[in-house]
């Protein structure tokens, strides 16, 4: 099957904050700097090129899109000031909007929705906190129902719950 370039794709990446995508001249400094590329099949330069060419389906379905740790090493070194992490974030947002997300990530997002925090509190941690003279439950949304309800309203307003299928 030959790839079908999608000309609107670049425009959407630009609109979502990845406007520097058009500046890339494919020098490969990013790939050479990428710690993830050392361990995985992810090639930063190639991903940026795929975005430029409008290979929407290939990008949004690729596992490599999720191999970036957002360490910013590439962004610091890019001679064309391409905001590579912003481009990756824009494309991840597009994948998620199409319902494409991994379970490990969805779980983190579910905890965020439920607890206001990416991880829940445990009995063990409560005991540890108490033993060192801290309140058992930290003074965050976890300790105030009204604050938690406010947080929930924000997530409803942005449609986040729907985004992650809740």
């Amino acid at each position: 099957m030959t790839a079908q370039p999608n000309n609107d794709f670049v425009q959407e990446v630009v609109a979502r904050g990845g406007d520097s995508v058009t500046m890339c001249f494919q020098c490969g400094t990013c790939t050479a700097s990428c710690p993830s590329g050392r361990q995985t099949s992810f090639r930063t330069r190639k991903l940026v090129r795929m975005a430029q060419l409008g290979l929407k389906d290939e990008v949004l379905n690729s596992q490599e899109l999720w191999y970036c740790t957002t360490c910013y090493t590439c962004t610091e070194r890019c001679p064309r000031n391409v905001a590579i992490v912003d481009i990756i974030i824009a494309m991840r947002n597009m994948a998620v909007a199409e319902g494409k997300m991994f379970d490990g990530h969805r779980k983190t997002a579910q905890s965020f929705v439920k607890n206001g925090h990416t991880v829940p509190i445990s009995a063990e941690v409560k005991a540890q906190r108490k033993a060192m003279g801290l309140p058992e439950v930290p003074p965050t949304v976890l300790a105030n129902e009204k604050a938690m309800a406010d947080f929930d309203k924000i997530l409803k307003a942005t449609g986040f719950k729907k985004t992650i299928g809740e």
Binding site: T69, T70, N93, V96, F112, T118, N144, K146, A147, T163
Partner: peptide, 27 residues
């Protein structure tokens, strides 16, 4: 800073939906 939530986490929440990330951070 009482009543605060997760920052929200750049890794998953910003990657999932930038608008949610911004709104919760703004709170």
């Amino acid at each position: 800073l009482t009543d605060a939530s997760c920052c929200p986490a750049p890794g998953v929440i910003r990657a999932f939906d930038k608008k949610t990330w911004l709104a919760a951070a703004a709170r």
